[in-house]
Amino acid sequence: VTTYKLVINGKTLKGETTTKAVDAETSEKAFKQYANDNGVDGVWTYDDATKTFTVTEMV
């Protein structure tokens, strides 16, 4: 189990959250659901070296 981080650069929501998951794909699903639940829709990137997802909304 690995800890993954999500950085949110939204128009109205900014911040970070973490989750523990067995792999990046599992954490990505959880993070995308979290973003969707909070009305964040944007461009996703992933940095495997830091286990960090970033979602950026276009303004």
Results as ranks from 00 to 15, higher is better:
38 N>L: 15
2 T>D: 10
10 G>E: 02
51 K>N: 08
8 I>A: 02
7 V>M: 07
38 N>H: 15
33 Q>M: 09
38 N>Q: 14
52 T>P: 00
48 D>I: 07
30 A>P: 01
27 S>T: 05
30 A>K: 11
21 A>E: 05
1 V>M: 15
35 A>V: 10
29 K>T: 07
31 F>N: 01
57 E>Y: 07
23 D>Q: 03
45 T>K: 06
26 T>M: 10
15 G>E: 12
24 A>W: 15
50 T>M: 05
46 Y>C: 02
31 F>Q: 00
59 V>W: 12
42 G>E: 01
51 K>D: 02
20 K>A: 11
56 T>K: 04
11 K>T: 13
9 N>D: 09
10 G>W: 05
23 D>H: 04
42 G>C: 04
12 T>W: 13
49 A>R: 10
24 A>Q: 13
15 G>H: 13
25 E>A: 14
37 D>T: 07
40 V>H: 04
12 T>Q: 10
27 S>R: 01
58 M>S: 12
54 T>R: 04
57 E>T: 07
53 F>P: 00
37 D>F: 07
19 T>H: 14
30 A>Y: 15
28 E>Q: 11
5 K>E: 03
51 K>W: 04
6 L>C: 06
33 Q>H: 06
29 K>D: 04
56 T>F: 07
25 E>T: 10
45 T>I: 08
47 D>A: 03
38 N>Y: 13
58 M>C: 13
53 F>H: 03
13 L>E: 07
38 N>G: 04
45 T>R: 06
59 V>N: 12
21 A>P: 01
26 T>L: 06
51 K>Q: 09
9 N>Q: 10
10 G>M: 14
7 V>C: 06
21 A>W: 03
15 G>Q: 12
58 M>W: 13
1 V>F: 14
10 G>A: 07
12 T>N: 13
29 K>M: 10
33 Q>F: 05
49 A>W: 07
24 A>S: 09
58 M>P: 11
5 K>M: 07
38 N>M: 15
12 T>P: 04
41 D>I: 14
20 K>F: 13
56 T>N: 08
39 G>V: 03
20 K>N: 13
15 G>R: 12
42 G>V: 02
42 G>Y: 03
21 A>R: 03
49 A>E: 12
2 T>Y: 14
47 D>S: 05
5 K>A: 04
9 N>C: 14
24 A>N: 06
42 G>R: 00
21 A>N: 05
22 V>F: 12
28 E>H: 12
43 V>W: 09
33 Q>L: 09
47 D>E: 06
58 M>F: 13
23 D>E: 03
43 V>I: 13
12 T>M: 09
1 V>Y: 14
29 K>G: 05
11 K>R: 11
14 K>A: 07
4 Y>M: 00
31 F>A: 01
4 Y>V: 02
4 Y>F: 12
5 K>P: 03
32 K>W: 07
1 V>E: 13
43 V>K: 08
1 V>N: 09
40 V>K: 02
36 N>C: 14
54 T>G: 02
58 M>H: 13
4 Y>I: 03
57 E>M: 07
58 M>A: 12
28 E>P: 01
50 T>F: 04
54 T>S: 05
39 G>A: 06
53 F>W: 12
29 K>E: 07
1 V>Q: 12
41 D>C: 13
54 T>E: 05
34 Y>W: 15
52 T>N: 01
4 Y>K: 02
18 T>V: 09
18 T>Q: 10
6 L>F: 05
2 T>F: 14
15 G>N: 08
8 I>R: 00
2 T>I: 14
17 T>I: 15
56 T>P: 00
20 K>V: 14
5 K>V: 10
2 T>W: 12
45 T>A: 09
53 F>A: 02
27 S>P: 04
43 V>A: 07
8 I>D: 02
4 Y>P: 02
26 T>V: 08
53 F>M: 01
57 E>G: 05
8 I>L: 08
40 V>W: 08
37 D>C: 10
35 A>E: 01
30 A>E: 11
32 K>V: 07
1 V>T: 12
7 V>Y: 08
20 K>Q: 15
16 E>C: 15
21 A>I: 03
23 D>L: 04
39 G>I: 03
3 T>N: 06
42 G>I: 02
28 E>C: 15
34 Y>R: 00
